[in-house]
Simulated assay, not measured.
Amino acid sequence: MLITTLMMAGTTLLAQTPDYTSPDYDAADSWLCRPGREDACTIDLDTTIIEADGSLRVETYRAAEDPGVDCFYVYPTVSNDMTPNSDMVANDEEHRVIAAQFARFGEVCRTYAPMYRQVTLTALRSMMAGQPVTADGVTAYRDVQNAFAHYMEHDNDGRPYVLIGHSQGARMLEQLVARVVDGQAVQTNMLSAMLIGYNVAVPPGEPVGSAFQAVPSCQSADQTGCFISYVSFRSDAPPPDASRFGKLPDPAVEVACTNPADLAGNSDSPLEAYLATGGAFTSSVVAGPWVEGGAEITTDFVRVPGLITGQCLNNEHGSYFAISVHGDPSDPRTDDIVGDVVANGVILADWGLHLLDIGIAQGDLIDLVASQAVAFDQ
Rank of each mutant, 00 (worst) to 15 (best):
residue 281 F to N: 02
residue 194 M to A: 07
residue 177 V to G: 00
residue 67 P to T: 11
residue 177 V to M: 04
residue 38 E to R: 13
residue 237 A to T: 13
residue 329 P to W: 11
residue 271 L to A: 12
residue 116 Y to F: 15
residue 226 C to V: 06
residue 234 R to I: 02
residue 248 L to T: 06
residue 345 G to T: 08
residue 20 Y to A: 02
residue 163 L to Q: 08
residue 19 D to Q: 09
residue 169 G to A: 11
residue 370 A to H: 12
residue 188 T to I: 09
residue 362 Q to T: 12
residue 245 F to T: 12
residue 12 T to K: 10
residue 368 L to C: 01
residue 331 D to Y: 05
residue 176 L to P: 09
residue 257 C to V: 11
residue 320 Y to K: 08
residue 62 R to L: 14
residue 247 K to I: 14
residue 352 G to F: 02
residue 135 A to F: 04
residue 25 Y to N: 05
residue 240 P to I: 06
residue 305 P to Y: 06
residue 347 I to P: 00
residue 51 E to G: 07
residue 226 C to G: 04
residue 217 S to H: 02
residue 93 E to S: 13
residue 142 R to F: 00
residue 264 A to E: 12
residue 215 V to E: 06
residue 219 Q to W: 04
residue 238 P to W: 14
residue 147 A to T: 07
residue 98 I to E: 02
residue 257 C to E: 13
residue 258 T to A: 02
residue 192 S to T: 13
residue 20 Y to T: 03
residue 235 S to D: 15
residue 300 D to T: 04
residue 38 E to W: 00
residue 271 L to F: 08
residue 108 V to T: 13
residue 49 I to R: 14
residue 46 D to E: 07
residue 193 A to R: 01
residue 19 D to K: 06
residue 168 Q to T: 10
residue 266 N to E: 13
residue 17 T to Y: 02
residue 218 C to F: 05
residue 144 V to D: 08
residue 377 D to K: 13
residue 25 Y to H: 02
residue 87 D to G: 15
residue 192 S to C: 08
residue 152 M to E: 09
residue 362 Q to Y: 01
residue 293 G to S: 12
residue 306 G to Q: 10
residue 48 T to Q: 02
residue 231 V to Y: 04
residue 316 E to D: 14
residue 189 N to T: 13
residue 127 M to D: 09
residue 151 Y to H: 10
residue 62 R to Q: 14
residue 41 C to E: 10
residue 293 G to F: 01
residue 87 D to M: 03
residue 184 Q to P: 01
residue 79 S to Q: 11
residue 95 H to M: 06
residue 266 N to T: 11
residue 239 P to I: 13
residue 148 F to M: 11
residue 229 S to H: 11
residue 332 P to G: 09
residue 3 I to L: 08
residue 294 G to C: 10
residue 116 Y to L: 05
residue 139 T to S: 10
residue 129 A to C: 00
residue 374 V to P: 00
residue 234 R to G: 03
residue 248 L to E: 02
residue 59 E to N: 12
residue 372 Q to C: 00
residue 3 I to P: 00
residue 202 V to K: 04
residue 160 P to N: 01
residue 46 D to I: 06
residue 289 P to T: 10
residue 60 T to E: 12
residue 28 A to F: 06
residue 112 Y to V: 04
residue 315 N to A: 01
residue 2 L to Y: 03
residue 24 D to V: 08
residue 142 R to I: 00
residue 329 P to F: 05
residue 130 G to Q: 14
residue 38 E to K: 15
residue 42 T to E: 12
residue 147 A to Y: 07
residue 103 A to W: 12
